[in-house]
Write a protein that binds this DNA or RNA. Structure first.
Length: 510
RNA sequence: GGCCCCUUCGUCUAAUCGGUUAGGACACCAGCCUUUCAAGCUGGCAACAGGGGUUCGAAUCCCCUAGGGGUCACCA
């Protein structure tokens, strides 16, 4: 299939960036236009990302527009959430937010002009009439198309309808023959026969524009050069183009990106777990990881490019709409988890601590505001455990013993390490030696354990495993000596003795 | 149902104009490393939806079938 290389001249423009003021360059202007009827979900977020990447790569502008013409469903708290989600992801925009609800005059003006030019007309058909026609069509198993009843009403007819108090909508007079071609960067040319497109409503009886009309007018009047949006809009694009043509505007170039599907290949919804950016935030994903993951859903740098980890800037440098797939993608939390763990491991420690703090607070492990030394301690703990967590929430989960003095011993660990012969006495011996150790540092402790294991004639493991259980309650975690240093001598010794007593008194003889 | 889009390992994907042992990543399995768990390293498992053409040669071009998705609102 033929693909357009619309980016050609733009690459040139990029090349001549410094000379921009001397030449008139084709400027890229894109928009992300969510409707504030819910939280920003992963599909919308990726559309925003692609817009951002495309605009940034071309040195163009990115506009944020809020499509809030549906007064019933739009809510201002969703607008706030949407904006904060965008900020959190790091997707900055150059203009806006522009609200459709504040541009209503433009839509009615355009519609009236079309009526005056006889390209649109008032339709007085009742909802009942229309639904009737629709259900009849369904019965006969054919598609319903508005029959054009009100296309050629006379002045007198209109007058009498109005005096009857009948309300009207405005419909666009669409051609009955011919083909409307959508030029799409990702899909090539898509043909739609006009005979299947009926006279769509552009202004509702309440005076508000319909989505297709308002959206197209905005794109046109705002000078949008590339409309990058989800594939679900592809089928409606010919209608929008017909609006633009009637109005006499040049068309923007389209790019319909594939949808993101749930694991069962159905449309993503609440019952599929976390799908909104907000939820990913509260589950402890890092914005860089989410962005990186989303970028790879439908896009890949292509031939030769085998890496998967990209910073936003790297993505900007390599992004190309022509390399976006046509196939809908199933989103897979497992890979997101891997990516997130990668970012947790490699993040700047300070930033990571900052991001993780709320999760430690939520578990009651620390309390804000933190004293400086507590903050340092938290940072060291995070440095020690970060390699083992997939989310920030998990980071807090596996760190509890660093902050809590009482914790349960893991069941399987007790069987494996506490119920071994002499476990209690080994632990006591270690505790005693640690107590009188000159310096409580990694090297000294390790040396101590080595010599003790030799002295007792047992393997290091026989000593180390019960010790880990004693001071963390767990069988897994960071290097043992590292934990002991972080915990400090007093707590280490206390926990060892407590565990020894526990084994002696609570554990049944095997 | 009409119209439109899509179809490569379980998942995300790669494969300049038709010629590859169909590549990578996640997941999974095994080994190495190791005080545990991770991480890391090495290896393994695993795909061109099906059927017809065109061609010396097809994942790649054409047609058909099947499956998935979208859309057909006075929702966006």
């Amino acid at each position: 299939m033929h693909r357009f290389s619309f980016l050609g001249p733009l690459k040139g423009a990029l090349f001549l960036k410094e000379m921009r003021c001397y030449f008139i360059m084709p400027t890229v202007r894109v928009r992300f236009a969510p409707s504030p009827t819910g939280e920003l979900h992963i599909g919308g977020a990726r559309t925003a990302l692609f817009n951002y990447l495309f605009a940034s790569a071309a040195g163009g502008e990115f506009v944020l527009r809020i499509d809030d013409t549906d007064l019933e469903r739009s809510r201002s708290d969703y607008i706030d959430k949407l904006i904060s989600s965008m900020h959190w992801l790091g997707l900055t925009w150059d203009e806006g937010p522009v609200y459709q609800s504040k541009r209503l005059g433009h839509y009615t003006e355009a519609a009236e002009r079309l009526v005056k030019e006889k390209k649109a007309y008032h339709c007085y058909c009742s909802t009942e009439t229309l639904t009737e026609g629709r259900s009849e069509a369904k019965k006969e198993n054919r598609a319903y198309l508005y029959p054009g009843t009100c296309r050629d009403l006379t002045e007198d007819q209109e007058e009498s309808y109005r005096s009857e108090g009948r309300s009207s909508v405005i419909r666009l007079h669409t051609p009955d023959e011919g083909t409307t071609v959508v030029k799409d960067i990702i899909r090539g040319e898509v043909d739609f026969e006009n005979k299947y497109i009926d006279d769509l409503i552009i202004i509702k009886s309440n005076g508000l524009p319909t989505y297709n009309f308002a959206s197209m007018i905005d794109d046109l009047q705002m000078g949008i050069t590339h409309v990058i949006r989800a594939e679900e809009h592809l089928s409606n694009t010919p209608r929008q183009q017909l609006c633009a043509e009637a109005l006499g505007y040049d068309l923007p170039i389209f790019a319909h990106v594939p949808m993101i599907l749930a694991p069962d290949r159905s449309k993503l919804s609440k019952r599929h777990g976390a799908t909104s950016v907000e939820e990913f935030y509260s589950e402890g994903y890092l914005p860089e990881a989410l962005v990186n993951y989303m970028a790879l859903l439908g896009w890949s740098p292509g031939a030769g490019g085998e890496e998967e980890i990209f910073t936003l800037d790297e993505m900007v440098n390599r992004f190309d709409l022509n390399k976006v797939t046509k196939t809908a993608a199933v989103y897979d939390v497992t890979k997101l988890g891997w990516m997130n763990s990668h970012y947790i491991r490699t993040y700047n420690l300070n930033k990571l601590t900052e991001a993780a703090l709320p999760f430690f607070e939520k578990k009651g492990l620390v309390q804000s505001p933190l004293k400086e030394q507590d903050y340092d301690y938290l940072e060291q703990v995070i440095a020690a455990v970060r390699e083992r967590a997939k989310t920030l929430a998990e980071l807090a989960d596996i760190s509890d013993y660093f902050f809590l003095d009482s914790f349960d011993y893991e069941e399987k660990g007790m069987k494996k390490h506490f119920q071994k012969e002499n476990a209690a006495s080994y632990i006591r011996k270690a505790a005693k030696l640690l107590q009188s150790l000159e310096t409580h540092d990694k090297e000294a402790i390790e040396a101590l354990y080595r010599s003790l294991s030799e002295e007792l004639g047992i393997s290091m493991g026989r000593l180390i495993h019960p010790t880990r259980m004693a001071i963390t309650g767990r069988t897994a975690g960071p290097g043992l000596f590292e934990i002991m240093v972080l915990l400090g001598r007093r707590k280490t010794v206390e926990r060892l003795e407590k565990a020894a007593t526990y084994i002696e008194n609570e554990l049944p003889e095997q």
